[in-house]
Simulated scan of single mutants.
Amino acid sequence: MTSNSNAVPGLFPGKIVVFLLAVGLMVIFVSSVFYRLQNPSRTVVRQEAPAGGKSMKALAKMGNMGQIRDLMQALQKNPEDLPTLMSLASVFMEMGAWDRAALFLQDALNVEPTNKDALNFYGICLYQKKDYAKSAEVFSQLLELDPDNPMAHYNLGVMQKYFLDKPDEGMENFRRAKALAPQDPRLTKLVNEELEATHGSAK
């Protein structure tokens, strides 16, 4: 992930990676499990690359291509199948193909505009595409549906503080995130660091 010139050196990039990557991995795992439950014959068995053969990275990419092919075939039969659209988005997010993932998430939101997972992942993709204003808008839409979502508050706060010149609103979202997840040590640590950087002490 690339950082923005307005980001605090050594502070912002690692923080956003923690939350966005965690969310991305979560959706990939959940979608993968769901898809395999629906298609038990597609369970993947890991194999070691033979000596002198393809690298593990190449094999993993081949596996993604096979999954994408299967999912695209399923989508041709039912273009508005939400689980298939979400699974395709997850695979492309895993590959770092944010443009492609965003397209399938847009399709998913056309099918179900209030789908919270789709909004969350779309916001992440937009961030990766450096469309920070739109990303903040999507996280705001998510909070309208789920006002007690601490990760959405945190991510919106990041957009506001580092990219949209709205530090006060960003700090308010950081505080809200902390209040909503007091038992989450990772989130609490990140928010405290933001508050300390701005005010000198966590509040």
Rank of each mutant, 00 (worst) to 15 (best):
S5K: 09
S5H: 02
A7Y: 11
V8A: 11
P13G: 07
V17A: 12
G24H: 03
M26C: 02
F29S: 14
F29T: 12
F29Y: 12
F29V: 09
S32K: 05
F34L: 13
Y35I: 09
N39H: 13
R42D: 15
V44R: 13
Q47R: 14
A49T: 12
P50T: 05
A51H: 07
G53K: 02
G53M: 03
A58N: 04
A58R: 08
A58G: 00
M65Q: 12
Q67G: 05
I68Y: 00
D70L: 15
D70V: 08
D70I: 09
L71P: 06
L71I: 09
Q73S: 14
K77R: 15
K77F: 04
L85A: 08
L85K: 06
S87E: 12
V91C: 08
M93A: 02
W98T: 14
R100W: 02
R100E: 12
R100G: 01
F104K: 06
F104Y: 15
Q106G: 11
L109M: 09
N110P: 01
P113M: 07
N115I: 10
A118W: 11
L119P: 00
Y122V: 00
Y122K: 03
G123Q: 03
L126D: 01
Q128G: 08
Q128D: 05
K130H: 09
K130C: 01
Y132T: 12
A136T: 03
A136E: 12
L142Y: 02
L143K: 01
L143F: 04
E144D: 14
L145H: 11
D148A: 13
P150M: 07
H153A: 05
M159I: 04
Q160R: 10
Y162M: 08
Y162S: 14
D165I: 02
P167M: 08
P167E: 02
G170K: 03
G170L: 06
N173D: 15
F174S: 07
L180H: 06
A181E: 06
P182C: 04
Q183A: 07
D184S: 06
L190K: 01
N192M: 06
H199C: 01
